[in-house]
Design a protein around this nucleic acid. Structure first.
Lengths: 112, 112
DNA sequence: AATATTCATCGTATATTTGCGATATAAAAT
DNA sequence: ATTTTATATCGCAAATATACGATGAATATT
């Protein structure tokens, strides 16, 4: 791809794009759902639900962790993943604000 | 990646992931903003605003078109891109519903 | 008719993502 | 102490994404 031009954009656009990328794979959406719904959210149980190998799930979990959407604490042998609600809310606010800002234009006679 | 496992997931998760992928690049976010705000939304003007070559912008426009987020009509020499509001609303509703459904779990004692 | 303009598409290079098996690590169970 | 269990990480292969120049197609201008 030669050199990435992503950094040439506005920081809020970059941030939004990064979050969107985090949920741009059905596996990560499914993982977020599972982690949010479970009382105890252990990686192994997620693996059972998903049609993916354990190493692949672990990798998706890592990506979600890197964007800050989930926290993972190692609790003895098992690890416990949880939604980071502060990050989740920050990020969903950014998305909603993008959606709302775009929809504001709807009533203008753009391209009518 | 060997073979994509995406189709092994639920259709609403796939749909959401596809939209997220569509806005997972700052260039496409910037394009959506421009197209929404402009009265006349011609590709050339978008190219002037973005730090990308014309062919690259055209490619991003194509991707947005493929997910259905924008419509493009060829109008003589120039082409006119517009937000497909029906698709945009369907998609933003899906996102908001995902966010809200996830946040519902916030008060449960998941992982305390 | 020749040229210029606008945009799409093709080909190509490189980067990133996805997926998995194999292996590593570390605690728990035997 | 050895084995089992749960998870992370490494290394590889294949797929996709990103970016651009070159070229093509189609209309507008001269």
């Amino acid at each position: 791809m030669a050199i990435s031009k992503k950094s040439a954009f506005k920081s809020d656009e970059i941030m939004l794009a990064e979050f969107a990328k985090a949920i741009s794979h059905p596996a990560r959406i499914a993982i977020l759902k599972e982690v949010a719904q479970r009382q105890s959210c252990i990686c192994g149980e997620i693996v059972e639900v998903l049609p993916l190998a354990q190493s692949t799930v672990s990798q998706h979990l890592k990506e979600l962790k890197e964007v800050g959407l989930i926290d993972g604490t190692i609790d003895g042998v098992k690890s416990c993943y949880c939604i980071n609600w502060a990050a989740f809310e920050k990020i969903s606010a950014a998305i909603k604000s993008f959606i709302d800002a775009t929809q504001c234009c709807k009533d203008k006679n753009c391209c009518s």
